[in-house]
Design a binder for these strands. Structure first.
Lengths: 194, 194
DNA sequence: TATTAAAAATGAAGTAGTTTAAGAAATTCG
DNA sequence: CGAATTTCTTAAACTACTTCATTTTTAATA
């Protein structure tokens, strides 16, 4: 089951058999039931999570109680509260399973050790951080430039697999709109004026 | 002048004298005049830029011609179109000097070589990518959770030095609102109803 | 397979933020 | 310095999106 992680890492750095073994052993398989939390506010996030199978949602709860989706992750994606994980400080986010799922977890200390021991692993984590950064940058741009409807259309065309698997209210809060408004966009029946 | 870069790098990884020399030589000092561009759409971004002294703004131009500020950078910050730089593909952003400035540039190939040669440099770039990622994450959260006024207040209290140095229209477009609306917030004179 | 709970749809009324336009203030630079 | 350009302000009309309240649909679980 850790083969998928190894395969993933090898997209970015070539490994020897020993190294493949080594990194494989650092990840633990964990089964997560639907609605179960893997990250909660005020607890320091101890793991970086690779989704082997399933779907997750990261969100924060605003002062008014409304929740805002920060990220989704389905098969072959990573999910974590990065501010909590990389600085080892209390989380502000929740991460919850949207389906029964299987994840592969590496813990913080183990990851540090891997990076310290072997240049290649350092490279791997550098690359995924850079790609994450570039990805977030694109999202910020999209949110600044586009209207709610455009954001939805873009997201559907880029990530149809995610749109199919996540509830509408979660998608709406990810795209920065209410579930009612997204419902209206989807049904192309925009409020008419009085 | 490259001493500031070395000092910066040493916040994250300890270097030998040789290494200090080595990284110092990789950065070239460049003077940039106000209104001069250092990144332009359709050109592949060849450099990562450290602002030694001055102020820059990264922005994209939307379909309607409105511009949207993606980032600011003043003394001791980095700025670049990361999607262009890390994937070495054509930029979508402009990066322009808001003041006469001095930057220290490393070019893509040199950076790759540094990371390849020495684990410590790889670690350094991994750390700044991770921190950048965490930073962007906080910005996405702030944009989703807060109203225009709250975003402004938060930004002022977190980055007063930047607020003082950048023009209002640029700050407004960074915070995702119009310059007119920001003007109203600042002058606390909200539109009254008829 | 009925029952309850959760999610989505719909409409009407409200509001945060935009647009347009025009004048005032501040910077730039010849 | 003085003219030109850029930036900021103000106000009124407008609109994209929200809020609230209710109903319908779908999914979960006994």
């Amino acid at each position: 089951m850790t083969e998928k992680i190894i395969e993933y890492v090898e997209k970015f750095v070539k490994l020897t058999d020993d190294e493949r073994q080594q990194i494989g052993h650092c990840f633990k398989e964990v089964k997560i039931k639907k609605r179960q939390f893997i990250v909660q506010p005020n607890f320091t996030t101890k793991h970086r999570n690779y989704v082997y199978k399933g779907a997750f949602r990261a969100f924060v709860v605003g002062d008014g109680g409304q929740d805002h989706t920060i990220n989704f992750a389905i098969d072959d994606w990573w999910i974590t509260d990065y501010n909590s994980y990389i600085f080892q400080q209390p989380a502000t986010m929740f991460v919850v399973a949207l389906e029964d799922s299987v994840i592969l977890q590496i813990d913080y200390e183990t990851e540090q050790e891997l990076k310290r021991q072997n240049h290649k692993f350092e490279t791997f984590f550098r690359i995924i951080a850079e790609r994450g950064l570039a990805f977030q940058q694109r999202r910020i741009i999209s949110n600044l430039i586009h209207t709610a409807e455009e954001r939805y259309e873009n997201y559907v065309s880029k990530y149809p697999q995610i749109v199919q698997r996540v509830p509408q209210y979660a998608l709406a809060s990810f795209l920065g709109m209410t579930t009612e408004f997204l419902s209206r966009i989807r049904n192309k029946r925009v409020t008419k004026k009085s």
